[in-house]
C-alpha cells in the first residue's frame, strides 16, 4: 500500500535472512525446514502477543500489562482444568480469552473514561494482575501431573504436519490482518493514532477505539495464557515475567511506530520472528541464554533509532530551481 512500509518490511526480511545465513555458517543444521518450523512454533506465542500489542500501539497507547495478563489467564486456565478436568478445552480457551478481554477492558476503561496515561495504567495493572495470581493460589504451582492430558496435548497436536500451536498463531495472524485492513474498527486504530484530532472530526470515538484495542490485546493475552501454560505444562506466579519487553521489542523491530498510526501485521510478525530466531540461535552458537535479555534491549534501541530515522520529517522543501523566464 505504501512504499516506505513495504521497504521496511523488506528490510526486515533481509535482516532475518542475513541472521539465518550467519547462524548457518556456524551451525548448518539451523536452516533445516524441520528446525525452522520449530523456531516458528516456538515464536507463535510472541507473534500472537505482538499482534495485540500492535493494535494498542497503533492508537498511541501502550500495554505493559500483557505478560501479567497472560500469567493470570494461564493460571486460571490451569485452575479450571484442575477443578473440572472433564471440561472441553475449547470452553477453557473461551473462558480465558473472555477473562483476558475483561482484564484488557480494565486498562481500556481507565484510559478511555479517566484519561489516565496508558503507561501509568498498565504499569499499575501489571502488578495488580500478577499480585492477583498470588491471591488466587497463595503462591502454589500447578504442575504437569495435575493437568489433564488433553489440556497439555492440544498445542502439540499435529494437524497437516504442523503443531496446533503454530496453527493458532497462523489463524490469529489471518484474523488480525483482516481486522486491520478490512474493517472499520481496524482502520479506526490507524486513524486514532495517526491524528486523534482529525479522528474526532471523522466521527471516530477516540477513547472507545483505544478501549477496543485494549480488549483485543487482552483477549490475545488470555489466549496466549492458555497456550503458554499448556505448552510448558506448568503455572506459577512468575511465568512470562518481563515478557512484555519482548512483545514491545517485537513491535518496535517490526516498524510499528511508538507514536501511533504506523505499522502492519507483516511487520509485527517479522519483528517477532527476528527475536525468535535470535532466541533459538543463542544456544546453538554457544551463547549463554542469559544474554537474551541484553540482546533484546540492544535490538529495541537499534530498532527504535532506525524507525525514528525513517519517520523523521524532512524539512519542507521551499526552493525550486529557478524557473526559465
Amino acid at each position: 500500500m505504501n512504499m516506505l512500509l513495504k521497504n521496511r518490511e523488506a528490510l526486515l526480511v533481509v535482516a532475518i535472512l542475513a541472521l539465518l545465513t550467519l547462524i548457518t555458517l556456524r551451525f548448518p543444521g539451523f536452516i533445516q525446514p524441520a528446525n525452522l518450523g520449530r523456531v516458528y512454533n516456538d515464536t507463535s506465542i510472541l507473534i500472537i502477543l505482538a499482534l495485540g500489542q500492535m493494535a494498542v500501539i497503533l492508537t498511541r497507547c501502550i500495554d505493559l500489562s500483557m505478560a501479567a495478563n497472560l500469567a493470570l489467564c494461564g493460571m486460571v486456565a490451569g485452575l479450571i482444568n484442575v477443578a473440572l478436568p472433564g471440561l472441553p478445552i475449547p470452553l477453557v480457551i473461551a473462558a480465558v480469552v473472555a477473562l483476558g478481554a475483561v482484564l484488557g477492558s480494565i486498562n481500556g476503561l481507565l484510559v478511555w473514561k479517566l484519561n489516565i496515561p496508558p503507561i501509568v495504567v498498565t504499569l499499575g495493572t501489571l502488578t495488580i494482575f500478577r499480585g492477583s495470581i498470588f491471591l488466587l493460589t497463595g503462591g502454589q504451582w500447578i504442575n504437569a501431573h495435575q493437568m489433564s492430558d488433553v489440556f497439555k496435548g492440544l498445542p502439540r497436536a499435529d494437524f497437516l504436519g504442523i503443531p496446533a500451536l503454530s496453527w493458532f498463531s497462523i489463524a490469529i495472524m489471518a484474523i488480525v490482518f483482516v481486522v486491520m485492513t478490512r474493517t472499520t474498527v481496524g482502520r479506526a486504530f490507524y486513524a486514532v493514532g495517526g491524528n486523534p484530532h482529525a479522528a474526532i472530526y471523522t466521527g471516530i470515538d477516540v477513547g472507545r477505539t483505544r478501549f477496543l484495542a485494549y480488549c483485543l490485546s487482552g483477549a490475545l493475552a488470555g489466549l496466549a495464557g492458555y497456550l503458554w501454560v499448556s505448552r510448558y505444562a506448568v503455572a506459577y506466579v512468575d511465568i512470562a515475567l518481563g515478557f512484555e519487553l519482548d512483545i514491545i521489542a517485537a513491535c518496535v523491530i517490526g516498524g510499528i511506530s511508538i507514536a501511533g498510526g504506523i505499522g502492519s501485521v507483516p511487520g509485527a510478525v517479522l519483528g517477532a520472528l527476528f527475536l525468535g530466531v535470535i532466541k533459538n540461535a543463542l544456544p546453538v552458537i554457544n551463547i549463554s541464554p542469559f544474554a537474551q535479555m541484553a540482546i533484546s534491549g540492544t535490538v529495541i534501541i537499534i530498532a527504535v533509532a532506525v524507525n525514528a530515522r525513517a519517520e523523521r520529517r524532512k524539512g519542507r522543501v521551499i526552493l525550486k530551481k529557478a524557473e526559465a523566464h
Partner: peptide, 14 residues
Amino acid sequence: VLFDELSVAENIFL
C-alpha cells in the same frame, strides 16, 4: 485535519 499516514482514497472514505 486529515491523516498523513493513510492513503488519499481512505482519507476520503474513512
